[in-house]
């Protein structure tokens, strides 16, 4: 577990003790998955352009049955575009995509019935009552029930699961933001999907709702054998929820692995900051000791305010995102390999 005394962002995962998400039962790394589990999503060289603007430039990844995968990236990185392509709502510019064995561009209703979709924000059906809306939507799934997957979800059970039983007869339009979001999740679940897409599911949640939601996701993956792909720009959320994190930056998958793997890869990385002739400099570097030795040999007393810190996963993520946005197409050394990068030493 990383420890990062410098982290000040709210919602950080530095444990305020007693937080249940930090007990050993946290979902991610402990959930077992057979390495031979069938592929649910296969994406190869996915490309997407809007006019001259290239949003995705060759993303490649695979997601197996039963996995909870977080697609992490800054705003505008193409997370929603990727998910919309997988959902069959948007036609890609290039590359191969298979979702549940079908190209989303050709998905029929039976295929659609196996997907659950929670988009970034919904305002629809504001005049409907909560339960009424779920009953209505549930009706569409009955013909697609199979022996190993009874569809749809029992509506009352579902209301209970997302904590909306009390609001069953409330009008959707008068619900609070958090309640509305829980309804969105319930709608995503009503067909008991094999694959659930959650686009920025916890935006606007208060900490308690967020915690409740995280528990719900774990339960779904385990009990209902659901494959879940969620997008988030919050690293901590990705870390808590997902078995595996895909970092989307610069239009491709810049890094992937479990939160632990990503942490381990960068645990040897340190952040060195100093002033040279009064100008501030910061470098993320694997071998801080030789870097500093080199620095003094070259500049001696011109160096002031030297500080060496272990880089946090978040810092590395942010600097990687910055690099990609600045147009460096290379995967940052911290995440792509175990070799230390010396390129920055000469800076």
């Amino acid at each position: 577990m990383k420890v990062n005394p410098n982290m000040t962002t709210s919602g950080c995962s530095a444990p305020h003790d007693g937080n249940p998400e930090h007990n050993p039962e946290r979902s991610g790394p402990l959930r077992e998955r057979s390495p031979n589990a069938p592929e649910v999503i296969r994406v190869h060289d996915l490309r997407m352009s809007y006019g001259a603007k290239e949003v995705l430039r060759g993303a490649t990844f695979t997601i197996h049955r039963g996995e909870v995968v977080a697609l992490l990236g800054p705003n505008g990185a193409g997370k929603s575009t990727t998910i919309e392509i997988l959902e069959g709502f948007r036609r890609r510019s290039g590359g191969q995509v298979e979702v549940l064995g079908v190209d989303p561009n050709n998905g029929n209703e039976a295929w659609r019935a196996r997907l659950g979709v929670v988009l970034q924000s919904w305002r629809d059906h504001s005049r409907w009552r909560t339960r009424e809306l779920l009953v209505y939507l549930a009706r569409h799934y009955a013909p697609f029930s199979t022996s190993d997957r009874q569809r749809p979800f029992d509506v009352d059970e579902l209301l209970d699961l997302v904590g909306l039983t009390e609001h069953a007869d409330a009008r959707v339009g008068v619900m609070s933001g958090g309640q509305r979001r829980r309804l969105d999740v319930a709608v995503g679940l009503v067909g008991k999907p094999d694959l659930l897409f959650l686009d920025e599911p916890t935006v606007g949640f208060d900490p308690e709702a967020r915690q409740h939601f995280h528990a719900l996701v774990s339960r779904l993956a385990e009990r209902d054998d659901m494959t879940i792909l969620l997008t988030t720009h919050d690293l901590n959320e990705a870390e808590r929820l997902a078995d595996r994190i895909l970092v989307l930056a610069g239009g491709e998958i810049a890094a992937e692995g479990t939160a632990t793997e990503l942490s381990q890869r960068i645990s040897s990385t340190s952040e060195v900051s100093y002033r040279l002739h009064g100008e501030p400099h910061t470098h993320s570097i694997a071998d801080a000791t030789s870097f500093v030795r080199e620095l003094f040999r070259e500049h001696d007393t011109d160096i002031t305010d030297l500080e060496v810190r272990r880089a946090s996963l978040e810092k590395v993520y942010l600097s990687m995102v910055r690099d990609f946005e600045a147009g460096h197409a290379d995967v940052p050394a911290e995440l792509s390999s175990d070799r230390p990068s010396c390129a920055e030493v000469k800076a």
Partner: peptide
């Protein structure tokens, strides 16, 4: 408001 998109995300949703 996304009602139509919801229909699109539901099997047979556009028809209903």
């Amino acid at each position: 408001d996304g009602t139509l998109l919801r229909a699109k995300a539901t099997p047979g949703g556009m028809v209903s």
